[in-house]
């Protein structure tokens, strides 16, 4: 089958790629666009390692087709920092050691940012349920949850 020509916006820049109709957005990002920060952990939408934002909505990119990004905006972990300036979540994750192997980290950060974008004062329970779709096998989640809540507190303090 002929490949589809897709025009989309990835991390704020217009991007084009050719993809097969059945290729997932995850595979396209990793293999065609060269953005390997988005990880594949299960390909069934259970682990959240492939979390990206699609038109402002948090999705598992393994459950989205590459062709579905036509005309939309995609945000990945690679677009989270502003040049050398890390996003406050990224900085907090480093300061509080909220990662061990780091493989789930991109997906967790993308999902956590999506939470803070809609809720600047989440409770611990809200953070835990929001991130329930992002599996981490290393940390027991403790430091991840704290880092997200501490970032939220910092951001509230900065904007107060």
């Amino acid at each position: 089958m002929a490949k589809q020509h897709i025009t989309t916006t990835i991390n704020g820049e217009e991007a084009e790629y050719l993809c097969e109709a059945q290729e997932t957005l995850l595979d396209v990002l990793r293999d065609q666009v060269g953005l390997t920060g988005t990880k594949e952990g299960c390909s069934s939408g259970d682990c959240g390692a492939c979390s990206v934002m699609l038109d402002g909505r948090l999705v598992c990119s393994c459950l989205v087709l590459g062709v579905e990004a036509e005309g939309k905006t995609v945000e990945t972990i690679e677009g989270m920092a502003d040049g050398e300036e890390l996003h406050p979540l990224q900085q907090k994750f480093l300061e509080e050691a909220a990662l061990q192997c780091g493989f789930c980290t991109p997906g967790v950060l993308v999902a956590a940012k999506a939470l803070l974008d809609v809720n600047d004062d989440p409770t611990e329970t809200e953070v835990r349920y929001w991130l329930a779709g992002n599996l981490c096998r290393c940390t027991g989640y403790d430091k991840i949850i704290r880092a997200v809540m501490d970032t939220a507190a910092d951001l509230r303090g900065a904007s107060a």
Partner: peptide, 16 residues
């Protein structure tokens, strides 16, 4: 698969 083999998720656990 992770749907049927259930490893702990964030909402399953307290702070440790």
């Amino acid at each position: 698969g992770f749907l049927d083999y259930r490893v702990p998720v964030a909402s399953d656990l307290p702070m440790i």
